Simulated scan of single mutants.
Amino acid sequence: MTTQLSEIWYTRCPVPTPVGLAAQLGWLEETFAREGIKLNSILDAKDPTIRESHFNHHLSWSFRHGGNVPPIRARSEGRATRLVGITWTDEFQAIITLPGRGIHKTTDLKDRRFGIARRPEGIIDFHRATALKGLVSALTLEGLTHKDVEIVDIPVAESVLDIQGDPSLFGLKRRLPYSHELTALIRGDVDAIYVKGTQGITVANLFGTIRVAEFGFHPDPKIRINSGSPRVLTVDNRLAEERPDLVVRLIETVRRAGDWAEAHPDETRRFVAREVGASEETVAAANGPDLHRHLTLGLDPVLLNAVAHYKNFLRDWDFLEDDFDLDAWVDRRPFDALDTRAVA
């Protein structure tokens, strides 16, 4: 007997994703409305326990598309979820410093202070995991390791959930990233920091920083791999097992959005700019001229190996509760159903 639903929860990170495109085009809402199901946004919920599901995936009848650290961590904690799709959209990643610090290239970081924010325990500190991977990637290119620099913790009092709706945000939903790292850099408490994406490229430009290393588009995928490269589409297990038909419809819609992006480069850049809260110029600089060609959803070995590589990095740096079998996390049934339908 098919479980009847009246609503489904979903969430997406404010980054380039085909789920974001499908939402802006109205296709997601239409897809579930045809089934008599209302689509609710987790991040727009007033209840903080609901908003937590963006990071720990605890809600039944939900799906999520975005950075891979929270869903990997949730799975390591035993959360019953399934990985049903992956996208890989490269983005600006860099190590930056300020003029006058005597740092112009990665080798100049040796024995210098590298600042990384540290947030309270609870919700996984994905910002920290991202910065650490960025540092390791940059150092690896010069034959260095994290032991060649002094990693300096930059304490952050609030978690990502605490500040939503705070009046000090001047009407915004969330604080823009890198404020704590930049403050430490300006004060001289640290010598260099990591930034990424549209917001990273914005602050790097705003403060007249020096680009020590940039590697978001490096030819070696293991250097580029980080929290946002690749991004994962996950669903909770009840949705996967009791309403697999809805997961098929979801993936069909998301893939259609990816196809639409390839045919509409200018509109895609405009939609992504709205999604991330940046100018189209910034999106083009941060994600490259071929952004519209990198919003397709898949489960091919290259994508899975990238997720496995970063999962192992998180494990080795003690960000995971326990290791887990990536293959057992993957649910290929929705893709298989679509492929069978296409052949029939």
Rank of each mutant, 00 (worst) to 15 (best):
H65G: 08
H58V: 05
S76M: 06
T81Y: 02
V156W: 13
W88S: 11
E77S: 15
P48R: 12
L141R: 15
L43K: 06
T107K: 13
K46Y: 07
P120C: 04
L43T: 07
K147P: 00
T97D: 03
V160S: 15
L39Q: 03
A129M: 01
D125M: 00
I116V: 15
R119L: 01
H65R: 02
L161F: 09
D148M: 04
V156F: 09
I116S: 02
A94K: 04
R128H: 11
P71W: 08
L109C: 03
E91N: 11
A138N: 06
D108F: 06
F63Q: 06
W27Q: 04
G102F: 01
S62T: 07
A74L: 13
S60I: 02
R128P: 00
D125R: 02
D153N: 09
I42L: 08
T106R: 09
T49L: 15
R119I: 01
E35Y: 04
S137R: 01
V69R: 12
S62L: 11
T97A: 13
G100I: 04
H58L: 12
Q93P: 09
I103Y: 11
D148L: 05
S76Y: 10
V160G: 09
F114P: 00
A131M: 08
H65F: 12
G67T: 10
G100F: 10
A131H: 14
K133T: 01
R34N: 14
A157G: 13
R73I: 14
K110A: 14
T106M: 03
K133S: 00
E29C: 04
N56P: 13
E29Q: 14
T49V: 07
T145S: 15
G36V: 04
A45L: 07
A33P: 05
R75D: 07
G85Q: 08
P71R: 03
D108A: 06
P120R: 05
L161W: 09
